[in-house]
């Protein structure tokens, strides 16, 4: 990494004015490298999982199970992939998913999102 930084500092001259016909200032390139490090660094310091943090396959985050209760009191689970196109753990499913479930499944009275440690309950209707 230090070798890379040293090379950037010594060799980022652009004799043929490479980018859109304009020379590129050394600080611009250094800023890009700093951003490469800083963005995932800041994401790493926040509550996982986060976007832009290169946290793939880290096991951080969780996809909830979806349980619905219909107007007649019946309770059943529905497959997550019936409702969502992906299983991304960094999406705030509690914010988005219950309203969608209430809209697309008839006669749903309540939606539960079940995580390992906590359940979130949402009532359908106005």
């Amino acid at each position: 990494m230090w070798a890379a930084i040293r090379e950037l500092l010594t060799r980022c001259h652009t004799p043929d004015k490479a980018f859109l016909g304009k020379p590129v200032a050394r600080p611009v390139i250094v800023v890009i490298v700093i951003l490469q490090l800083m963005v995932p660094g800041l994401v790493f310091l926040q509550e996982p999982p986060g976007r832009l943090g290169w946290q793939m396959y880290s096991g951080l985050g969780e996809i909830p199970k979806i349980r619905i209760e219909t107007a007649d009191g019946a309770v059943r689970e529905i497959p997550f992939t019936n409702m969502a196109a992906t299983r991304r753990p960094e999406i705030n499913w509690g914010k988005h998913l219950p309203a969608h479930v209430c809209n697309v499944i008839p006669d749903v009275a309540a939606v539960d999102l079940i995580y390992a440690d906590v359940d979130q309950s949402f009532a359908c209707g106005p």
Partner: peptide
Amino acid sequence: SHVSWPNTLIMTQISVVYFFTALAKIN
């Protein structure tokens, strides 16, 4: 090519990806 810095940015990006994905997996 006489332009080095985009290549170097590609390489630093790859290093950063390996580094942070390893860091995130330390749990």
